[in-house]
């Protein structure tokens, strides 16, 4: 059971980190840059926030399956494939939230920052840092989405015991088997983790608001 919990956390946390590394700069570019087609990209990233996990899993499955474009990597049914699928789920959340937080901040800051001598590019890290409290909330929302979903990890991971079995896929399996005790226990662990994480985030937010205004 510890192994299942460990794998779940490892997969989801890695996916969150990757999604942030890609999504924060992309969201910032969307917030500050003006280019043709920007509106379409904004709508697309907003829409993808509601991407059904199973569909994300299917897309990654097709990419990674033996005859797919990335089939040679032999990633299907490994934790790596699960990380890719979950990154796909979290990325739109991080991008959209970053864009919206930074757009608001930019509206407030842009004259002052230009006056102080900051270029648009140089403003990006400033805005990301000053929006850190709001951005944290979004990153946690992404974490919540990824740790709760079962469709994507099931499709690309295959729910292989000791290899790609996570808390959510294990709950699905044990429920089907009629092994309700174990399913409930795992459910409680999952809920507790989510609760703890959100309590920590809320506390951090409150602290930061009191501390930073």
């Amino acid at each position: 059971m510890m192994q299942i919990i460990g794998l779940s956390l490892r997969v989801t946390l890695t996916a969150v980190v990757i999604a942030c590394v890609i999504g924060l700069p992309l969201g910032a570019v969307l917030a500050l840059a003006r280019f043709p087609g920007r509106g379409a990209v904004v709508v697309l990233s907003n829409a993808l926030m509601g991407l059904p996990p199973v569909v994300a899993g299917l897309v990654v499955y097709l990419m990674l399956s033996r005859s797919g474009p990335l089939g040679s990597l032999s990633l299907l049914f490994t934790p790596g494939a699960m990380i890719i699928a979950q990154t796909l789920l979290i990325l739109p959340i991080v991008i959209s939230l970053t864009r919206s937080v930074l757009e608001d901040l930019w509206a407030e800051y842009h004259e002052q920052l230009r006056s102080l001598g900051a270029s648009r590019l140089r403003a990006v890290p400033t805005l990301l840092w000053d929006g850190r409290v709001s951005l944290l909330t979004g990153v946690l929302a992404g974490f919540g989405r990824a740790s709760a979903e079962v469709g994507a990890v099931l499709v690309v991971g295959g729910n292989i015991a000791d290899h790609t079995r996570t808390m959510t896929t294990a709950i699905t399996l044990e429920t089907n088997r009629g092994n309700l005790g174990l399913a409930v226990a795992l459910g409680i662990v999952l809920l507790t983790l989510t609760l703890m994480l959100n309590a920590a985030a809320w506390g951090a937010g409150q602290w930061a608001r009191g501390r930073l205004g």
Partner: peptide, 28 residues
């Protein structure tokens, strides 16, 4: 370059007083 502006409503960054003073120097 050697000019500055102060706005009707001060726009301060979400950091400490010292951090706000340091920021434009870091930009330079």
């Amino acid at each position: 370059e050697t000019q500055a502006m102060v706005f009707q409503r001060p726009v301060l960054l979400r950091r400490s007083v010292a951090g706000n003073l340091e920021y434009p120097l870091a930009l330079k």
